[in-house]
Design a binder for these strands. Sequence first.
RNA 1: GGAGAAAUGGCAGAGUGGUCGAAUGCGGCAGUCUUGAAAACUGUUGAGGGUCACACCUCCGGGGGUUCGAAUCCCUCUUUCUCCGCCA
Length: 423
Amino acid sequence: MLQLQAIRNRKDEIIEALEKRNIDAAPLVQNVLELDEKRRATQTQLDSTLAEGNKLAKEIGMLFKNGKAQEANALKEKTTTLKEDSKRLGDDLNNTADELQSLLYQIPNVPHQSVPAGHTDEDNEEVFSEGEIPKLNDGALPHWELAKKYDIIDFELGVKITGAGFPVYKGKAARLQRALISYFLDKNAEAGYTEIQVPHLVNEASGFGTGQLPDKEGQMYHVGEDNLYLIPTAEVPVTNLFRDEILAEKDFPICYTAYTPCFRREAGSYGAHVRGLNRLHQFDKVEIVRVEHPENSYKALDGMVEHVKTILRELKLPYRILRLCGGDLGFTAALTYDFEVFSTAQDRWLEISSVSNFETYQANRLKLRYKDENGKSQLAHTLNGSSLALPRVLAGILENYQTEDGIQIPEVLVPYCGFDKIG
RNA sequence: GGAGAAAUGGCAGAGUGGUCGAAUGCGGCAGUCUUGAAAACUGUUGAGGGUCACACCUCCGGGGGUUCGAAUCCCUCUUUCUCCGCCA
């Protein structure tokens, strides 16, 4: 959520930047500013009413103490209207504040200046690419065919026990997936990220903290009985670790990595592009999360991008990096780089990582602050990225490493797998 | 799941109707002393709103209530601890 202060001070700048998201924020912003004005006016009225009441209460106390009960009782009558007023003003204030809050929830993050304008993923800007696209033999298969051929991923079994989008990994695919998780965690730890294990269900406050609620309510699995949400990404529990925290400057940088399953309802996405492992309701992911000093957050973002690069380089997968355009940028992000691996067999790019800087947008909701050198509280910056998402990496490996007599295992993974070939 | 106890500042912990945003200790920060550090001593040290700055207002787990006045009394929810039951 944007800071009110920022909206007040840099209104036009913010409206202009939001145009990159193809939205006209002007009416919303105007509305916010008016409500803010109203909120403050009501607050001031309420405060002085309360102040008067406090004063009277003290006087009454003194009078009773000095045995002047009659005078005290006379004063008591004066408090009646004050109480009525403050009740009314208090309700007013709450209503205005709620309304203001819900408007603020509707304004997405302000895109970073480097974010290109654009409407769809077509308009994303390729900023880097690396790796050789392998030449596969004529009979090269997409991963869902390979999965069947070698009997390593069973989509039907998943349908039987749960439903579509919940595959069952068998034998060497299960082992390969576990190997990838370990490998990713090891690489992240090597790069200075502390490994943690977090709950896979979160409460409502956490959903609001990182911005999944209220706008993506329908995308998360919700356990109504206990009012808990299955996490769509480790970003949610890990970032919320810092909700309501005030850090010291010396605490930066904070770097965490966590492996978790991710649950997404993916309501409304069907069709050829969601075949096989391309889009699932449950998948595994290793995430990196950072909390940074505002001055360092973009350097940190670059660092995260470099880090993911080294992993893909080691896996020898051909990939490219896109800077997301305004239209494709997530609601809470200021700048996002997507990593995509090229799948030769599918002849398309598969998104395998998304690395973002949220600046203060999440921190404002989280009330995640630090003390600056003057001892004042300032909002920190939060960042996160996948390092990496499992199913599509798996798909990329299966497809790009297939040969006529089986699927090769990337060299760096062999020690983790204990075998070097599937098939 | 049953019975009981509890929730106060970064931490520990006092406070049971007014003088309490809250004693005290620890920790943090600044200073004195010291070549430097430690110790000792002195001062300072919660968050948010509001203001040019003050004033002022709110917050003692969350929500509601009683009262002129609530950290303190009542209701409710949540969480934690102890005992019992169940259990990987």
